[in-house]
Design a binder for these strands. Sequence first.
DNA 1: GTTGAGCGTT
Length: 279
Amino acid sequence: MSHFGRSGPPDITDTYSLLVLNITFRTTADDLFPLFDKYGKVVDIFIPKDRRTGDSRGFAFVRYKYADEAQKAVDRLDGRVVDGREITVQFAKYGPNAERIHKGRIIEPVPRSRSRSPRRRHRDDYSRDRGYRRRSRSRSYDRYERDRYRGKDRDYRRRSRSRSASPDYSKGRGRGCYDDDRRSSSRSLSASPARRSPSPRRSLTPRKASSPRGESPYRRSRDGGSPSPRSVSPRGHPADSRSPSPRNSDVDQCSGERVTWANGHDVDVVAVDAVCICR
DNA sequence: GTTGAGCGTT
């Protein structure tokens, strides 16, 4: 009977919400209902789920009709081991729309004073004997925040862990299809991601006269016996003053063209980066 | 199959 949470938020203004933390990712509302219903009238149980994967986020909201019953549930169920984990039951402090809640009941429709952060402080005395210290809100916070604000077409690079409830995202499918779709348009020529193009800002393809005589620039240089393409590109060694420098001062715009060096040799410009350093 | 601080849905 998982009728909880299927018809949107019910009349929460009249109920008392409890926050149940530390439940198992497999725990469902049906699992929690018998426990909490023993102490009062449970009107709703809601387990927030990852909107994208559908996974449980590991906590739940249990709404009681009466405050005393909710209080009783807190007293009795806080620290109870459910499904192998010690759950934490406390009154919710914030509502679905960031309403401030006191003792599980909404006392302020909307916190307009606070801009966007209704969380003023966390756990006043709820961290009694549980060893709750301020850790670094890391994982699930990012997971949640990204799902909420970043949308679903971000790069979920480390969001591949899911449980048995969502096998669709465990392997193969899932984020892989997103990436493929987004990259398919710009996957033109560099099929090997391990090696990048030496000149990302400009195409290395000789535009004109790359081999006027059917020779490749490399062969041409070697045949010339003199400055090889490597010497043309000192790459971090501009102090190589003994190396011949081209007379042509516009070589940085002549990729694929032929330039004449001071020693009289002609070389083909094969890389824009290489020639720019020589200037 | 896995995670583990936290506050919310047709």
